[in-house]
Design a protein around this nucleic acid. Sequence first.
DNA 1: GGGCTATGTCATCAGTTGGTGACTTCTAGG
DNA 2: CCTAGAAGTCACCAACTGATGACATAGCCC
Lengths: 192, 192
Amino acid sequence: MSPPLSPVRTRNAAATRTAILEAARRRFAHEGYDRTGLRDIASDVGVDAALISRYFGGKEELFEEVLTCGPNIAEFLEGDREGFGDRVATMMAIEPMREEKFELFLIMLRSASSPKAAAAIRRHSSEAFFQPLEAWLGGEDAAVRARVLSCLMMGATMNRMIHEDYLLDDSQRRELCDALARTLNHFVSSDV
Amino acid sequence: MSPPLSPVRTRNAAATRTAILEAARRRFAHEGYDRTGLRDIASDVGVDAALISRYFGGKEELFEEVLTCGPNIAEFLEGDREGFGDRVATMMAIEPMREEKFELFLIMLRSASSPKAAAAIRRHSSEAFFQPLEAWLGGEDAAVRARVLSCLMMGATMNRMIHEDYLLDDSQRRELCDALARTLNHFVSSDV
DNA sequence: GGGCTATGTCATCAGTTGGTGACTTCTAGG
DNA sequence: CCTAGAAGTCACCAACTGATGACATAGCCC
């Protein structure tokens, strides 16, 4: 993808590890587990692919570590509760798609169909996604509401992935955004 | 996958073509575009992989033809409108996952991240998915409501794919099913 | 300054993929 | 019966993947 990752990195193992993890996270989010080659990641970092296997053990372990130290739902939960629906819906239906904001979703959506990646995703989706969301939601039925919200957000991201513009004109996209925002807010605040 | 496709098929080009298309559709739905090899499909049919390239031109064209003659949203729209939400939500949250019922969704979800497949999906999702759904919904804002419904259905299928049981116990799954059903029905019947 | 070790590279492997052209075999029509 | 062409197979290719062990090199400590 884009070359400049860490400015200088001369024989610094820790910095190289971090740079590999960052490059891997971006690649996995943009291309998915299967379509990301160790050589791609290595060339992003400016390093030999063999190094990745030596540092992380293999592609699966690298993916696992990306998820461990990776992005989570937290940044979606910043701000006031009443504004949650509008913030998320606007991000998903109106604003230009900034893939780096959706890395968690994209990694899940684009890698979940790969059996090896799916196992790791299953292992980590709870702590990176559902637990924080449920805690933020609060209430007895938080688990169920979190699932509905996750359906909406995943589905919206998926739609956006498939057809960038949703095949809608501007006013329809605003209507869609409103509908999503209201539905999201409904499950943020109310009982199911 | 499972061997028995067409009972007899001795040097019948048309039947072989159909058998290949069926096997390909199932494979693409179950494994996604990238993880499905021409050899896998061929061995399902009991035929040499070279035949597929000769009949369809290549993997991309095969995928395209699967989408052309493939499944669509229609079977989800059978039955009374009032029961739509319950039918779909039950299928997605309660009933055991019958992958053959979700082939359209699964093909989209598991192959959309593959650039070659994504182009074909973009080309066909409108006529196989949104147009029928919008027509069934009716009304001025049918396009927008169709998108919300698609978000919910795609997201629910995705969640089901990732963790078979949603990480919920039985009563929570029933609550989730109710919430999904009510939300779906809301966008089936009402204005946004 | 010299060596030792962490850091990184290179060559290579076995496996898989989609694809192609030459080959065989079955069957319909004369 | 017998042959022509359709239907299907086989052998192979080039490209790519993840992975491994042998090798090179840079920088720190004495």
